[in-house]
Nucleic acid binder design. Structure first.
Length: 370
RNA sequence: GGGAGUGUACCCAAGUGGCCAAAGGGGACGGGCUGUAAACCCGUUGGCGUUCGCCUUCGAUGGUUCGAAUCCAUCCGCUCCCA
């Protein structure tokens, strides 16, 4: 029911292509997962999402547990039918909220007690509870509950997060009781290569159908992250999908893929889209800038998305200046399509053994990291 | 004709003797955003010089004062009420 099949290997890096089979369809890797935190990729419909050539999307356990609650989602037959997306879904475990809502939580070895950002009520998330929620939500891929420490962090804090994440991974696996959902393990360790490798070994020993790198893009520089990935990713089990959580910018994706990553998720195309920022192969556009006011050009001449086929920059700028909701929608559609088109091109180039060419076709992916 | 108000920067609007180049909001301009507390957040918004300072500015003109957006006189514009 869940299977990962590698297909091509880039000769000049650890990059590879593959296909992930899930109960709701296949995912071509390397894959980019748009984020639909509260069960919706903000601002666009599932149809529009599908039209960007997206295979799989991400939803968030913490947010859905608070509202509408996992029981309500289960009552509707699970996430797929509740949100009207019939493709594969991955749910985050809430581990990232341990980081992003740090001021609202208290961590101990049992789990994390959050003060709800919605009404202040107390919600505790333990590995068991996170998995129970994710079992009810019914995504195709679910994630172990981890502790994601911010960077830079003290060696003691990073080490403690690693050991706790390992303990929580075991508990997550024990708690998981649905065979139609693949539970991925998460590796922590900050930028410490030895600690990362130690964590990989421990998590791999527990045994999961996929492995994620968490705790990156949380405060470190692009160079630091890439340096770490280049020494760490290829130590992850080679025959299982590798998922770099929360990343990222186009250059981060290419660098991650070269290090051997197969899956990514990131809010950038949607959040930045809503905030009037558009990605293109050669540059980024701030859609509100006055210079676009009279532009009859699309966001990206080379893009085949709905937005670029039908609307001018001048009009899209107007929508943002007038605070029309269509602006964020059109920009989000474009950005997700941009990411997916780039990923498709990357898969093609890996299959051709010529991934290096991506730097010419997508200059924005050029990296300053070694 | 009589009476009562009012005029501040691109717009609205505070300020009623010095701490005022002038609050706040809007608009405009620029920047940021990496497992989403984000259709959000930050900065700039009279001129000239890189601290800090100088210059011009609160309807207009003239005056009082060491000092005026603030007080006085006159004028101009606008609003409302009574005829």
């Amino acid at each position: 029911m869940f299977e990962f099949k590698k297909s091509a290997q880039d000769p000049n890096s650890y990059a590879r292509t593959g296909v992930l089979s899930t109960p709701h369809g296949q995912v071509r890797t390397p894959a980019f997962m748009p984020v639909g935190t509260a069960g919706s990729v903000k601002g666009i419909t599932p149809d529009q999402l599908g039209a960007t050539d997206t295979d799989i999307m991400l939803c968030n356990t913490y947010h859905l547990a608070l509202r509408p609650t996992a029981d309500v989602v289960a009552e509707f037959g699970g996430l797929h039918s509740f949100i009207g997306w019939n493709g594969p879904i991955l749910t985050d475990s809430g581990g990232f909220q341990v980081f992003s809502l740090a001021e609202l939580n208290h961590i101990d070895d049992d789990g994390v007690a959050f003060k709800s950002h919605i009404d202040g009520s107390l919600i505790t998330l333990t590995p068991e509870h996170s998995i129970e929620i994710q079992n009810k939500l019914g995504a195709d891929i679910i994630m172990a509950f981890d502790q994601c420490p911010p960077l830079p962090g003290t060696p003691e804090d990073i080490k403690a997060a690693v050991e706790r994440t390992i303990r929580w991974a075991k508990r997550s696996k024990t708690a998981h009781n649905r065979t139609d959902q693949a539970l991925f393990g998460i590796v922590q360790g900050g930028l410490d290569v030895n600690l990362r490798r130690h964590c990989i070994d421990a998590i791999a020993e527990i045994g999961f159908p996929g492995y994620a790198l968490g705790g990156l893009s949380v405060g470190e520089t692009h160079e630091e992250m890439v340096t770490c990935l280049n020494q760490v990713t290829h130590h992850m089990p080679e025959d299982k999908p590798r998922y770099l959580m929360g990343v990222g910018m186009p250059r981060d994706l290419v660098a991650g893929i070269r290090s051997g990553i197969d899956m990514f998720d990131c809010v950038l195309p949607t959040r930045n889209g809503r905030n009037a920022y558009a990605f293109t192969p050669t540059r980024s556009l701030k859609l509100r800038n006055a210079g676009h006011a009279l532009s009859h050009a699309p966001i990206d001449e080379t893009c085949d998305c709905y937005t670029c086929r039908n609307f001018t920059l001048g009009y899209i700028r107007h929508l943002f200046m007038a605070k029309e909701m269509l602006g964020p929608t059109l920009a989000s559609i474009h950005n997700i399509r941009f990411f997916q088109k780039m990923m498709a091109r990357i898969r093609d180039l890996i299959a051709q053994g010529n991934l290096e060419r991506i730097y010419e076709e997508y200059p924005v992916t050029k990296t300053t990291a070694k």
